[in-house]
Simulated assay, not measured.
Amino acid sequence: MEIHSFPENNSKGQELTNSTESLTATEGGSITLPCTAHNISDKKVFWFQTEGYPIFVLNESQTADDRFELGRSNGDDWGLQIHDVTEWDAGTYRCLLNTKPVQMKTLHLTVLIPAKINKTMSSTSMNVFEGEDVELYCDVRGNPEPLVRWIRNDESVAVGKNLSLYDVTCESSGTYTCTASNNVGKTAYHDIQVAVCTNAAEETHHRNEGFAFILFFWCIKDIFISSA
């Protein structure tokens, strides 16, 4: 923000041409929101975030968040520094000089967030039977919106957060890797193992269940006969 004073008009305060600026920061990094005020005299410089309470009034912090500080390299510098930037820092900031009328500079901050995969909310390794349908899901976030791909045997098999496998066979078994990238930070990965059991294994499973039930029935029968 450039606030210019004119000697012949100094008693009337400073002059500011309203302006708007867009800035970008990366999550976890630092950024300075520029604001320059020349010869503010008895006026005060305020920093506001969106429509909330002031962050700074002159050199005095109005927030308990110590990530915010003034980066005053000289007497005219009223830049606002934000450290360890989070996604919640995105939004509109205003550097304001309390003249009449009020003069201010508006800054819009966008926070870039590397692609991240929430493995707790994503699909995990599973065992399924031949002929079943399988739905794999990858919970992804980031800004800008990450590109999500599914990789199997070093080949891309699908794009998007969901991967559908229909009427699976033994050949469907293997590792399915969800990748997410948005050119901010490193690519994120999540491996999901899918094991497809044959129908023969399923039949053996059911036969074993049936045998266990029959064995249980005969054991109960013997108990009643012995106690009779």
Rank of each mutant, 00 (worst) to 15 (best):
S123W: 08
I192W: 00
G142K: 04
I113F: 01
F217V: 05
E202L: 00
T32N: 09
N153W: 00
I223D: 00
Y189K: 07
A212M: 14
T187P: 07
N74A: 07
T179M: 00
D139W: 02
W150S: 12
S226Q: 03
D65K: 03
E130A: 10
I55A: 00
M104R: 13
T32E: 11
A228I: 10
E21T: 15
S181G: 08
I31T: 02
N183V: 05
I31Q: 11
S125Y: 06
R149F: 12
T187C: 01
G79A: 02
P114G: 15
K116R: 09
T106M: 14
D167K: 01
F46Y: 13
A200R: 09
G160N: 06
N127M: 14
F6V: 09
W78S: 00
E130Q: 13
G174A: 05
R149C: 02
C138T: 00
V196W: 12
K119S: 10
K119L: 06
L96V: 15
I151F: 07
T169I: 06
N183G: 04
H108K: 11
C95S: 15
L58Q: 14
K100T: 13
N208D: 13
Y189H: 03
V194H: 04
T32I: 14
N153L: 06
M121K: 12
S5H: 14
R67W: 14
A201R: 11
E8D: 06
C219Q: 10
L96C: 06
I31S: 10
A180Q: 01
R72I: 02
P144V: 07
S73D: 13
T198G: 12
E8N: 08
E69K: 12
L96Y: 04
T124L: 14
D133R: 08
D133I: 00
T187G: 05
E171A: 11
F217C: 08
G52M: 09
L16E: 08
I225L: 14
C35V: 13
P34Y: 04
M1I: 12
D65N: 07
